[in-house]
Design a binder for these strands. Structure first.
Lengths: 262, 262
DNA sequence: AAAGTTTTATTGTTTAACTATTTGGCGTGG
DNA sequence: CCACGCCAAATAGTTAAACAATAAAACTTT
């Protein structure tokens, strides 16, 4: 046996590397293909153990993996167990953010990326302009103005990111929309300790007003269907305001997505 | 004791949700902050057990999490153990792809998103044109032409994606560059069973040639520093060729990122 | 010296128990 | 009858100790 060993005899069951990830793959597939839908309960541990013919610790490693991906949520108690969940985007955002963090990416870089996505989106909206979208954008401006007058920086920031989301989501491209959401989430993570500083700054008020005016102008262009002009205007606007943000806040610091995950 | 139970007495140790994810968080932080660098070996399980005061199955759940994130790679044997690794982008790509898959995103959608990112990148290259980048792009064209003449569709596809990568990576924005890589990875996963069909098709050859010509033309514009023109041209080119791809292949099917992972 | 064998350090997996946390039901006292 | 508290049952969370598998190094034999 010792001589023939090595790799001559292939095992009947290739038996993927680790039992846990093998099982996680199987369950993951069931969930993602919709075989198991959000809200549905997975079988309890001991049943799955028998089904997959593994021990409890091994099965539980698999459950941890799925739980970490936010595919399932596990609870204890009488009617506890693993329930399929809608995917939580913040989990993906964290992983993308982790990647960026390891490369020393700055918040400035992330903001710039966002500024990169929006102008083409604006173009698309101008090309096939829909009343619903335009109305939503207008409503957003109203809310932003109110927040501005109330000197409520948090609400104003919310309104701004919402505006961005509407822009990118209406580009009618799911992939791009997801990217926009990821960026929003990553930026949001950083803002936890960033927004606070907004209060005391001089000139912020003025910048905020310019920002609102810029969006109003964009809406006009969108309504007029001026695709080229809308795209160009919005790029210039974002570049200008990004510059201000970069110099104002400590956006040149690498992001950190690990702050007290909880 | 029964009466005072409930939640009156807070434990000294708040003891975050699950031991495994708590430990994973600690180790993850060490890795991401660079305290532990790629190649370095983590302490063996039994030492970490003592350090974190948990049992082996619990610790191993944590290790599984980090392994799934590609932060560590575990091997058995005498000098085995967990080693810190450079992050594997395909893990992140898979997770992003999972998200897209659950929304029923089509390959067409993903390709369109890529077409969305490149024109602005082309603009940037035209604005601050560097010889190195232009040379790399030119070299790419040469390779593509060779693949074309050899009727080597795989090499040609490689060249095309490389061209895209150079474009987006030279945008000097890490976030955007990461997105481009993610898209490339997701597309690549799908191409496993997609490229094969390329051979038999009529008109493909012609399309390939147009694609190469388009890139040559783009390079000319970039060299001339015609930012606006380069961006516009490239968008039109991508839109046109995307349309062809969409009708030719089964790009209208939802993507599937779960096909036989390993 | 080369080849094969044994030893050893490490992770992979199993089994069996105990602990903690919910929920529902049951009973007792108002 | 209702409300409160206690208990029981179902479930996941954690621990413990052992054994299996693997890979490298050390040793032994030819």
């Amino acid at each position: 046996m010792t001589e023939t060993a090595s790799k001559t005899a292939k095992q009947g069951k290739p038996k993927n590397p680790k039992a846990a990830s093998r099982i996680a793959n199987l369950l993951r597939r069931q969930i993602i293909t919709g075989e198991l839908r959000p809200g549905e309960k997975l079988l309890p541990e001991r049943v799955l153990q028998e089904q997959f013919e593994v021990s409890r610790p091994t099965l539980r490693e698999a459950m941890r993996l799925l739980e970490a991906e936010s595919l399932i949520k596990i609870s204890r108690g009488q009617h506890g167990g693993a329930r399929v969940q809608k995917l939580d985007i913040s989990v993906t955002a964290r992983q993308v953010g982790m990647y960026l963090q390891m490369e020393g990416t700055t918040l400035a870089d992330v903001l710039q990326a966002r500024a990169f996505l929006e102008p083409p989106a604006a173009r698309l909206i101008a090309e096939n302009r829909s009343l619903a979208v335009l109305d939503e954008l207008k409503g957003n401006i109203v809310a932003a103005k109110k927040a501005y007058e109330d000197s409520n920086p948090v609400a104003l920031a919310e309104a701004q990111t919402h505006f961005s989301e509407v822009l990118t989501s209406q580009a009618r491209n799911q992939t791009l929309s997801l990217f926009a959401k990821l960026l929003h989430d990553i930026v949001h993570m950083q803002m936890v300790d960033l927004t606070v500083k907004t209060h005391s700054r001089e000139g912020v008020k003025k910048m905020q007003w310019l920002s609102i005016r810029g969006r109003e102008k964009l809406i006009e262009l969108l309504e007029a269907g001026e695709a080229d002009e809308a795209e160009r205007f919005w790029r210039n606007h974002l570049e200008a305001s990004t510059k201000v943000v970069l110099s104002s806040y400590r956006a040149q610091m690498p992001i950190d997505v690990l702050q007290e995950t909880e």
